[in-house]
Amino acid sequence: MDRKDFLNSMGMSAAAFALINCIGCKKNSESSSSDTTGPTGVNFTLDLSLAANATLLSNGGSLVSNGVIIAKTNAGAYIAVQRSCTHESYTLTYQSANSRFYCPNHGATFSENGAVTNGPASRSLTVYNTQLTGTTLKVYS
């Protein structure tokens, strides 16, 4: 194989790889854009004595369960919101230092009560109720 054939082959391989990845991105964005609402019929409990849920024992801790982000605020209250951004359904993170939920994809932010504080999102997050009884935290619609 001479240099020209080799470079031609490499270029075609790179182009095919890029095309496959672009098609995959389009599929993912189409499916994620339809999932910008929170789950319905939410009703589950978390045992805070289990190691898997230990992050919720500390103020500022959070975890994701059943499509919901559950967090313990710096003031010690439990809050729960949908895990996906209302803009394009990317996974949110809880930033306790800023008392907000943050979308790392486009920079949307939401207050602890789910209200949009910075776009491009224009719709508030679905907020769920929480109730602590002993070491059992109930999250429900």
Rank of each mutant, 00 (worst) to 15 (best):
N53I: 02
S58H: 05
D47N: 13
S111I: 01
G11I: 02
L63I: 06
S122L: 11
K26S: 02
L125G: 12
Y94G: 05
H87V: 06
I69H: 10
S84E: 02
F44H: 05
T73N: 04
A97G: 07
S29N: 10
G107M: 08
S32L: 07
L57G: 13
Y90N: 10
G60Q: 03
I70V: 15
T91H: 10
N98A: 08
S111Q: 06
V127I: 05
G107A: 14
Y140R: 03
M10V: 15
C103L: 01
S84V: 07
T93C: 08
K26Q: 11
V68I: 10
T36S: 00
D5R: 13
R100W: 06
A77F: 09
E30T: 04
G24M: 09
E30H: 10
S9L: 13
N105Y: 09
E88H: 12
A108F: 00
S34A: 07
Y78G: 09
N8P: 02
D47Y: 10
F17Y: 13
G24L: 08
N118Q: 15
S96W: 03
T93F: 14
S29A: 08
F17C: 04
T126N: 13
C103Y: 06
F44Q: 08
L7D: 12
Y94C: 03
A80K: 04
L19A: 13
T135V: 10
S29I: 12
N113E: 11
I23D: 04
A121F: 15
L48E: 12
Q82G: 11
N129F: 11
S122H: 09
E112K: 02
N43K: 02
S29F: 06
P120Q: 07
A75P: 01
K72F: 06
S31F: 05
A15S: 10
R83A: 07
I79H: 00
V42L: 00
C85N: 10
